[in-house]
Every structure is written in C-alpha cells, then in structure tokens.
Simulated assay, not measured.
Amino acid sequence: MLIAKGELVNIRELRWGDLKYIQKWSNDPEVAYWARGEKNATDTPIEEFRRWYRSRSSSTIKRFIIETKDRKPIGSISYRDYDPINKVVVLGIHIGEKEYWGKGFGTDAIKAFVRYLFATLDINRIELDTFDDNIRAIKAYQKCGFKIEGVLREAKLIDGKFHDVIIMGMTRKDFEKIANKN
C-alpha cells in the first residue's frame, strides 16, 4: 500500500519480497557506512530479515520502501521510538541503490515521509541523528527543514576514529512554516 508520494519517489509499505533488497543494502559496506556508520557490513543471512519481518508488529521500528516512480525499490525509510506522551518519533533513511545517491531521491523521500508522519501520527516533533562525516545527509536534512540542535562529541567510534554525532530535529511549527511557503 502506498503511503506517500514525492516528486521523484513513492513510499510504500514493506512486503515480504522486499527483504532481498533490505539484505542487499544492509550487507553492502558502503551503504552500511553511510546509513549506520558501520565500516564492516556483516553478511547477514536472509533468515534474519525474515525473522524480523514476522515479528515486526511488536517492533518499535516501522519501515517502508522508497521506490522510483517506475516502481524500482531504491531504499528504505522508517520511524522508531514513537513516544505518544511527548509526541516524538525518530526518523531513519537510507538509499541503498548507489546510482541514486546525490540526485535528490533521498531529499524527496524525506519531504514526502515527513508530510506523512505529521498528517497521520499525533506528533509534534521528528528527530534524527547522523555522524559528522555524513555531509550529504546533513545537507539533505537541512533542505527538508531539519535544524541542527546539538552535537554529541566523539560519540561514535568508526574504524578506530571517534566521530561527533549530529542531532537534528523538526517541530510541527517548523513543518507548517515550510508547508505554508509552498
């Protein structure tokens, strides 16, 4: 089921057949580095993804597939840690198909997903984090209206080097200002 439309992408519910893409992207060292700051992607077997899929109704992560307008899966986007009291969720995204990097597909997916989250969940805030070397992601988040709110100094160890973790957020007010300009 389609949940959001952007100019370049559609976002839809995750299906059983998508697990092969999730596995491929998770096991790609370059994708894993930029998505999770993991230098050495593991060769996670498909059965692990199948177990997760079967138990996902109890998971705090709600994951969706990003696909091109011609229905090619290129990545995933998710929210987690929904806090109904403080009305906050944490956003996560990765474009797993590298030929789509740097071409606006991630930015378009974030914009569409943020619209979906504010329209369907009773939230006031979306937050995310990334590490300091992920300049492309930081710029994409800022284009979508996220603001840098803080830095956790040397909080992530990647390949023997400590990196700062950049905390970013967007409130409903921020989103409404952007939406009213368009």
Rank of each mutant, 00 (worst) to 15 (best):
E7S: 12
A137Q: 10
I135S: 08
T107G: 11
Y141N: 03
F64S: 04
R125V: 03
R80P: 02
P84E: 12
R71A: 14
R50M: 12
V9A: 13
V89S: 03
W101R: 06
E47N: 13
E176Y: 07
T130Q: 05
I135E: 13
D43Y: 06
E97T: 07
R63F: 05
I61P: 00
V114G: 02
M1D: 08
Y82H: 15
S59I: 04
Y33D: 10
I22L: 15
I123P: 01
T171L: 09
L14I: 15
E47Y: 09
E99K: 14
C144R: 01
I148G: 07
G160M: 07
F118C: 05
E7K: 13
V9L: 08
K5Q: 14
V9R: 00
E67W: 07
M1Y: 11
I11Q: 02
T171K: 02
I110A: 04
P29D: 04
I66C: 04
I61E: 15
D174I: 00
I77G: 01
G160E: 10
I126T: 03
S59W: 01
E154P: 00
K62I: 08
L157H: 05
Y79P: 03
N10I: 08
A137D: 06
V9T: 15
E99F: 03
D129R: 07
E176P: 11
G75D: 00
Y79A: 02
K181S: 15
F131R: 04
K143T: 06
R51H: 10
E47I: 09
E30Y: 10
E38F: 11
S55C: 07
E30A: 09
L91R: 00
R153A: 08
I65K: 03
Y141V: 02
G17C: 08
V90F: 09
D159C: 05
N27H: 05
L19Q: 05
D83T: 01
K39Y: 15
D133C: 07
A112D: 05
A112L: 01
G104V: 08
S57E: 14
Y116V: 06
N180I: 09
G150K: 04
V89A: 08
L8E: 10
Q142P: 00
R12W: 01
Y21W: 13
I167S: 11
D43P: 00
T60E: 15
I66L: 09
L117P: 01
E7Q: 13
F146T: 04
F64V: 08
K5C: 12
T120N: 15
D122S: 13
D129P: 00
E47P: 00
P73R: 08
K39P: 04
A32L: 10
E176C: 09
K143M: 03
E13H: 13
R80M: 15
D122F: 06
L157S: 09
V90I: 14
R15L: 11
K39A: 15
Y100K: 09
K62H: 14
S78M: 12
A35C: 06
Y116S: 01
E47L: 07
G17R: 12
S59A: 12
V151L: 13
K103W: 10
V114I: 09
I46S: 10
D70H: 10
P73I: 00
I135Y: 12
E154V: 04
I158N: 05
R15G: 10
R50S: 10
C144L: 01
G102I: 00
E67A: 05
T68F: 11
K39L: 15
N40R: 11
G92L: 06
W16S: 12
R56W: 01
M170P: 05
P84R: 02
G92H: 05
Y79H: 06
G37N: 06
K103E: 09
A112E: 01
A32C: 12
